[in-house]
Simulated assay, not measured.
Amino acid sequence: MRKLLLTLCVTAFGSGAMAWADCPASADTSNELLNLIARAQGAENATQGQRISNQMWQVWLRAPDEAAQAALDAGMRRREVFDFAGAIREFDRLAAYCPNYAEGFNQRAYIHFLNGNHEKALVDLDVALSLQPYHVAAQSGRALTLMNLGRIAEARAQMLLAVENNPWLSEAALLADGAPLGRANKEL
């Protein structure tokens, strides 16, 4: 009987650990991110700015536990090989397991964006930002999504916030005069 119980536990844990446990609360990374934002704002060159941007990603990609990290990593691996349906399944699983972990929603939004499902992307980005207001990548992703939805004034305001928080974002180029979110855009 003991051997059967052990086999059942190992099988259950290996195939569906998320169904057997609750996701722990996500760590409060606000102070860490505010510090990185301040450092990005004060960075003297693109090399420093990119290093700080990478450190921000390290914070956002830190899942609450091993099961959540495994789902996040699996979804990202699927995205890298353009298995968007598989990535969505992993991020759906992650969002269901850890509904308070912003990055699960941000990553799922990115897949929706890549698939042209901008309305779905916007919903997930709004959730991600409600959970982690200092998620600069979600801020810029939201701006890009709004831009693709034709909501240019909102997109510009969102991108200005993202670039204020991290002036080294490549998306900042969209704010240049004549660019889609620049001041010369007639839709503003």
Score class of each variant (00 low, 15 high):
Met1Ile: 08
Arg2Glu: 14
Leu6Phe: 11
Leu8Lys: 06
Phe13Val: 15
Ser15Gln: 15
Ala17Gly: 15
Leu34Ile: 11
Ala43Pro: 02
Glu44Pro: 06
Asn45Pro: 11
Thr47Glu: 06
Gln50Phe: 05
Gln50Lys: 12
Trp57Tyr: 08
Gln58Ala: 12
Trp60Phe: 10
Arg62Asn: 11
Ala68His: 06
Gln69Pro: 03
Ala71Gln: 15
Phe82Trp: 13
Phe82Thr: 14
Phe82Ser: 14
Phe84Val: 04
Ala85Asn: 12
Ala87Asp: 03
Ile88Glu: 06
Asp92Asn: 15
Leu94Ser: 05
Ala96Trp: 12
Ala96Asn: 12
Cys98Tyr: 00
Tyr101Ser: 08
Gln107Tyr: 01
Arg108Cys: 03
Tyr110Phe: 12
His112Tyr: 15
Phe113Cys: 11
Gly116Ser: 08
His118Met: 10
Glu119Ile: 15
Glu119Asp: 15
Ser130Gly: 00
Ser130Lys: 11
Val136Gln: 01
Ala137Ile: 01
Gln139Lys: 13
Ser140Ala: 10
Leu144Ile: 10
Leu149Glu: 05
Glu154Ala: 03
Glu154Lys: 05
Ala155Val: 08
Ala155Arg: 01
Ala155Thr: 10
Ala155Glu: 07
Arg156Gly: 08
Ala162Gly: 07
Glu164Asn: 10
Glu164Thr: 04
Asn166Lys: 07
Pro167Ile: 07
Ser170Val: 14
Ala176Trp: 09
Asp177Pro: 13
Asp177Thr: 11
